[in-house]
Amino acid sequence: MAFPRILVAIGFLLAKAAGGEIIDRVAITVGARVITESEVRQAVRLRQFLNGEPLDFRAYILRDAGERLVDQLLIRLENENSRYGVPSEEAVAAAQARIIAELFRGDRVAYETALKEYGIDERLLLEHLRWQLTVVRFVGVRFGAGLQITPEEVQAYFMAEIAPKLGPGATATAEDFQSQIEETLREQRANELADDWVRETRARTIIDFHPEVFQ
């Protein structure tokens, strides 16, 4: 009969309504590790804070943040196993100072106000900066060490990227920019290798996005 079933359904829903709120839950599983929804939202806040974008938690933004957190978790696990080292506190402080200078024109009050608006604890921001520096270090050591840049590659880069900007009559040659070009190319190549590594590692890992978080 429909009536008793309705009573049961009411009972369930009333119980649910009298319950509390979800304060955190599993959003993504990466092998035996998890990323929680609060982490995903935190990542969105940080990104939008650093980009000067308004807070927006639409599903596709959450999803995008989740994907990047998966990549970072894989790198974090590899870093834990291989111990490529951590950045110094001075480097972290310097990165923070750069943010205050570039985004807030040196105005610390405006910086702190913005942190409050975005719901970000300053320790969280520093942790984020520390992690970004760790990733850069990881990519550099893991994929960049030993990369050889040939003179032909330096020349090609010079002709494609630098020479057009020098204007007619410029006398500079590739050799004048060699060390910068080599560093740039090494960085690019390392990033490509890192992307490949992330792609391969993802393919080997069971990754599961919980749909209720990303709707």
Partner: peptide
């Protein structure tokens, strides 16, 4: 490894 989903509810 014993769980596929975990939610924490507060009231």
């Amino acid at each position: 490894g014993q769980y596929t989903d975990i939610r924490v509810d507060a009231r």
